[in-house]
């Protein structure tokens, strides 16, 4: 049952399929980055595939992995079909020099936060993502901590306190009273 997905993708997009395996029953396809959106749209819209639920988007850094060949970072996408009850895992290898992948947000809106987390932790840019900001860490954090070459010990620089003048330029804060009335009796 589960090999149907690999066969369908191999038959339709042989140029995008870089490899496949089905260890312990988890069907896995390695997809070239340039073909990702095309394959994703096919997986969602084809009635025999019908992958309507994005389960997870994450990444793996294969820097220290024994006998690993090819790009260091793989973006890993898990999909589930609620009608066919089958799952698939997509691997998308990304070169560190050109660390970006097309965002799956146009296909499944549910990948939005998961992609933000991958950007946060691995520094993979998702082109076409509507709001690619850090999610678990804060703006001003240096580095992407789940990469294997990120040091386990060390200090992050302190984040400067936003100056009132900077806040005044922020359109979101235009109604905020930047000069609050002093409290009676306060020094």
């Amino acid at each position: 049952m589960s090999h149907a997905v690999a066969e369908a993708v191999a038959g339709r997009f042989p140029q995008h399929l870089l490899g496949q395996h089905a260890q312990v029953g988890d069907e896995t396809l390695t997809i070239a980055r340039d073909g990702l959106l095309e394959v994703a749209r096919f997986l969602k819209s084809d009635p025999a595939m019908a992958f309507d639920m994005p389960i997870d988007v994450t990444a793996v850094d294969y820097l220290d992995y024994p006998d690993h060949v090819g790009p260091r970072i793989h973006v890993v996408v898990h999909l589930y079909s609620t009608s066919k009850k089958h799952r698939v895992r997509l691997h998308v290898p990304v070169d560190l020099g050109d660390c970006q992948v097309p965002s799956l947000y146009p296909v499944w809106r549910g990948t939005e936060w998961f992609e933000r987390e991958v950007w946060d932790m691995y520094g993979v840019r998702f082109t076409g993502h509507p709001d690619l900001r850090r999610i678990l860490l804060y703006e001003g954090f240096v580095g992407h901590p789940l990469r294997k070459d990120y040091p386990l010990r060390g200090y992050q620089p302190l984040v400067p306190v936003a100056h009132l003048d900077d806040r005044a330029e922020d359109p979101k804060l235009k109604n905020v009273d930047l000069n609050p009335r002093p409290v009676e009796g306060a020094r």
């Binding site: 260890q23 988890d26 389960i55 997870d56 994450t58 992995y65 890993v76 898990h78 895992r89």
Partner: peptide, 23 residues
Amino acid sequence: AGEVYGYTEAANGELGFYIVSSG
């Protein structure tokens, strides 16, 4: 060595663990 995605129904929904082992 290998990779696996294990999923169960936790109280809030599908709780998944994606694990990569290098052996």
